[in-house]
Design a protein around this nucleic acid. Structure first.
Lengths: 252, 252
DNA sequence: GTGTTTATCGTCAGGCAGACGACTATGATC
DNA sequence: GATCATAGTCGTCTGCCTGACGATAAACAC
């Protein structure tokens, strides 16, 4: 296999983003409406071309900032300030995935706390947070009554892979804290797990588990009552990235 | 972000392969010697350009067949015949990773049982199985006395990521059977775990664990004595891909 | 105050994992 | 053939973790 610089076909390389957050007890993803063909008017994942002098992670962080205003975090450091967690997800390169040309897309997964309304180049009507089940269903009507069409390109597959990655990764890592504000309560963290997994968890066992896992949570000393009921302790994410023992998703 | 077909920089897209196997109680990877610059004479991971009409997985399977003669398996089906497990690992796209041009490499991970000697275009001296620690160390001498140089490009990083993926994935999936021949004993499977993790496991607890995990192993009825000692039962890989409960890697 | 909501602590039984003893079945050696 | 070394398989015991769930604490709404 000689390495002939003229012997390789040219590809376009893009990054696509699966940006997840938890809003109103539901796992939501960021979707943007396409302004031109193909798939004009359909919802899609945000993304764009990788520039000539840009690393893949840089391109993903730039797109994330353009779409949400979020700063991306170094993956080595767990979420501590307002930065979002960003990691590479997978790469999609079916020759027919874009009808215009050969495009290889390096999908990335971003996790963010509940945020102000999204912006897409300043045009809010072209970007929204939508529950992932709504984006993944093939047809029907969303809860706002608007008819649902499948996501553009292979973005349903990418979103599905991103959701599955998030679901499994919060089991054995402290990633669920990336969905929370810098300070949060055990109850808020529990509602994150419940929304991402789509199950109900026992508050007492959950509390014992997360407070007993070394390095997961650090008490800040403060308390809050923003959920109603008895005031709850506030925590920050601890230094641990890998949880031992892991959080176990209930049997299916 | 208008989609202007002339507005994207062209990239070369390659697949690189981390092919792992277990030989003589050590985790080994396939390395090929580079025949031309850059990094001429250095060891590298096998790989090559993705063709214009080819999916990424197809390209990886083709390269795997060219280098080892192995047929790749559909990832949805666990290893049952002689096919190797093949899955996408990650994508590497640093602008400077190849000094000649902008190359994005989609790395794949392949797991194979112990095989006859590798072939690289018919030239055996240009391909070899080497223990991963030997390939990852920065300098020194291999056990054959040959001086060691770091792998070409960013292949040390890719190999390291692939090894880490394999180490963690055999915990919660039945992937370790991909390192075994179609029929194998509990002891052979244990030696796979020991080689990949680099630890010693208690044979009695290991036996209880794997035979007690539903869907992991299916007895074939036969026995073998190829390891010496008392004859051992032969098993095939069961249908389960996700292990519940998982195999736990001993604490570090 | 009473009821409601959420947070937090405790108890108990079942299951799994690590440590390790005991026994079995083969080939190698004397 | 007796003995030994090697490897495989079955049990036992103890401690830890988990899930189920009772009980108490501290806020707010009326």
């Amino acid at each position: 296999m000689p390495y002939d610089p003229s012997a390789f076909p040219p590809f376009a390389v893009t990054v696509d983003l699966v940006v997840l957050t938890v809003r109103r007890h539901a796992l939501c993803a960021l979707a943007v409406r396409r302004g031109e063909p193909p798939f004009q008017g359909r919802w899609a994942l945000p993304g764009g071309f990788v520039r000539a002098d840009e690393d893949l992670a840089q391109a993903a962080a730039r797109e994330l900032a353009e779409e949400t205003g979020l700063r991306a975090h170094d993956p080595a450091v767990p979420a501590q300030d307002n930065g979002a967690h960003l990691e590479q997800l997978a790469t999609y390169g079916d020759p027919k995935r874009d009808p215009r040309m050969r495009v290889v897309s390096v999908a990335h997964l971003a996790l963010a706390p509940d945020l102000p309304a999204p912006r897409a180049g300043g045009d809010a009507s072209n970007a929204r947070w939508a529950p992932v089940e709504e984006l993944l269903q093939q047809s029907g009507y969303g809860r706002d009554g608007e008819p649902v069409a499948p996501l553009a390109f292979d973005h349903a597959q990418i979103l599905s892979d991103g959701v599955e990655r998030a679901r499994s990764k919060i089991e054995y890592s402290s990633l669920a804290t990336a969905f929370c504000p810098p300070e949060f309560t055990v109850g808020e963290l529990r509602r994150v797990y419940e929304a991402v997994w789509g199950v109900a968890l026992d508050p007492r066992n959950f509390h014992r588990k997360v407070t007993g896992t070394p390095g997961f949570l650090v008490p800040t000393g403060g308390t809050t009552t923003r959920q109603g009921g008895r005031p709850a302790q506030l925590f920050r994410a601890g230094g641990a990235t890998l949880l031992n023992p892991p959080m176990l998703r209930p049997e299916v």
